[in-house]
Amino acid sequence: MIDEIPPVVPAGRMAALPQPDFALPGGMLLRPWRAYDAPALVASYEDPDIRHWNRPARRTPAEAEAHVARLRDLWQAEEAAVWAIAPAAGGPAVGLIGLADLDLRGGSGEFLYWLLPAGRGSGATVAATARITRWAFEDLGLYRLRITHSVHNPASCAVATKAGFPLEGTMRGALLHTDGWHDEHLHARLRTDAPA
C-alpha cells in the first residue's frame, strides 16, 4: 500500500544539491564542515552544557577529522544535512546545526544544534534554524520539521518558539541523559504553516 504513495522528496534530490552557505545576522555564517573545524567537535564534549543536553561523542582530533568527512558522506547518502556555524569573517566553527533522522520519502527531519561559548548570545541558533527551515521546505521539499529537547532545557525551548516551531506536546521519558530519563518537548513546523 505504501508503494502507492509517492515520495515527498524523490531519492537523489538532496544528493544532487550542493550544500549551500547561508549568511546569518550578527556576522555569522552557515557552511559545510571543513577539516579545520575538527577541534570544535573535540571541544563540544568538553563543554558541560553541550555534553548534558546533546550527548556528543568524546573524540580524539583524528576521530573528529574523520567525523567531519562523515558529515559530507551523510549529505551524499541523504541521511543528514549538517552545517557549521562559524564567523562570516573566517575561522573555525563555533557551533553545529542541521537536520538528522531525515525521512525524505515521508518528508520529515529533526533539528539538532549546539553552540560553544564563543557563539552563544548572538541569536545565531534561532537565525540558523529559521534559515535551514526555509531551505528544507523550499529547496529540498520536506513537509514537516521537528525540534525535541528536554523539558529542563529552557534555552532550547526558546530557540524553537522564536524560530516559529510551536509546542505540540510532551513526550514522557523520551531521552536518557547522564542524570536520568527526561521528558521531552516536541515542537514542529509544517511547510504549510504561516511564516514565522
Rank of each mutant, 00 (worst) to 15 (best):
V42L: 04
Q76N: 08
D37Y: 00
M14W: 10
P48V: 11
D103V: 11
R72Y: 00
D49M: 11
P20T: 11
P32C: 03
L115Y: 08
M14G: 09
P25C: 02
L96V: 09
G91C: 09
P20A: 07
A15C: 09
A100P: 02
N54E: 15
D47N: 12
V42I: 04
A64W: 02
E110V: 15
L17P: 06
R105C: 12
G12D: 15
A88C: 07
I85S: 05
L74S: 07
Q19G: 12
L74F: 05
A16E: 13
E110T: 15
A35G: 00
S44R: 06
V94I: 13
V42M: 01
S122I: 05
L104K: 01
W114I: 13
L29T: 06
R105L: 13
A15P: 11
G121Q: 04
M14V: 15
P20G: 07
L99H: 03
H67C: 10
P6S: 14
P87N: 01
E79I: 10
S44F: 04
I85E: 03
L116D: 06
A38M: 00
R58M: 12
F111I: 06
G12T: 12
G95Q: 01
A43Q: 07
V8M: 14
L99C: 07
V94L: 12
I50W: 04
R59M: 14
P87C: 02
A57K: 12
M28N: 06
P87M: 00
A38K: 04
R31S: 06
A86K: 00
G90M: 00
A35T: 13
P87D: 01
Y113C: 05
T60C: 08
A77W: 00
V8H: 12
R51G: 05
P32W: 01
V82T: 11
R105S: 15
P10H: 15
G95L: 05
G27L: 02
A40F: 06
P32I: 03
P87G: 01
G27T: 00
D21N: 08
E63Q: 14
F22K: 10
M28K: 05
I85P: 05
S44A: 14
G98I: 08
I97Q: 07
L74K: 04
L96N: 12
P61Q: 06
A57Q: 13
V94F: 08
D49F: 03
A35P: 00
A86P: 05
W114E: 12
R55K: 12
R34C: 03
L99G: 03
V82L: 09
A64C: 02
W83M: 04
A69H: 10
L30K: 09
D73E: 11
M28R: 10
W53Q: 10
A38V: 04
A100M: 13
W83A: 08
A11D: 15
A11P: 14
A89H: 01
R72H: 15
N54D: 15
A93H: 01
V94D: 01
A64H: 03
P6Y: 11
L99Q: 07
D47Q: 10
A69P: 02
A84H: 03
P117C: 11
E110L: 14
S44V: 03
A64S: 02
A38G: 02
A43R: 08
G121C: 01
F111Y: 13
P56E: 11
A77F: 03
S122H: 13
P92L: 02
E46G: 14
A118Q: 14
L29E: 01
R105A: 15
D101A: 15
A93I: 05
V82R: 07
L24C: 06
